[in-house]
Amino acid sequence: MKQKRLFYGKTKGKSTVGNRLFIEEEKTQMDHGKTLGGMFETFFRAKGLEGLRPRTLKEHRVTFKYFLSFLEKKYPDIKYADEVTTENIRDYVYYMSKEKNLWDDHPKESCQFKTDKKGLSPFTVNIRLRTLKCFFKISL
């Protein structure tokens, strides 16, 4: 005659703890397939829904294009947002402050003057960093 077990212990049932994904793990698994440009489009739509003014949205797009241009020149292997490191951002700040020619990458060709002046003003560098801070804060 079989006896019923009254105490099952800790191993009763399916083990699901090992199969659980935490929010951070789910987010990295879903978002790693998106490129920086794709992540920016998601960020851009979210900012549009928040009610930012069209000019602010336009400046976010232009500023992010400057950053992508820098990454393509200096770090061509970086394709995803989670691959960007603090060191990459520091290099970008140094580039803007000390190395960048004043009128390079300007959208209007008529504004491209011949000058040897290097480095953007600290005000311009901070404006460009503001967009990146906001983007990486939301995206990662």
Rank of each mutant, 00 (worst) to 15 (best):
K2S: 00
K4D: 03
F7A: 09
Y8I: 11
Y8A: 13
G9T: 00
K12L: 14
V17D: 08
V17S: 11
R20L: 12
L21A: 06
F22V: 02
E24Q: 05
E24D: 07
E25V: 05
M30C: 06
K34A: 03
K34I: 02
T35Q: 04
T35D: 03
L36F: 07
G37L: 08
G38C: 03
M39V: 04
F40L: 05
T42G: 12
T42M: 14
K47W: 04
E50G: 10
E50N: 05
G51P: 13
T56Y: 03
K58M: 04
H60R: 07
V62N: 12
F64M: 15
L68A: 09
F70K: 08
F70I: 05
E83G: 01
N88I: 11
R90T: 06
Y92N: 04
V93I: 15
Y95W: 15
L102S: 00
W103H: 02
W103A: 00
D104I: 08
K108S: 14
F113N: 09
T115M: 10
D116F: 07
K117M: 04
G119K: 09
P122E: 02
N126I: 02
L132D: 02
C134P: 01
F135V: 06
I138D: 14
I138S: 12
I138P: 01
S139W: 02
L140S: 10
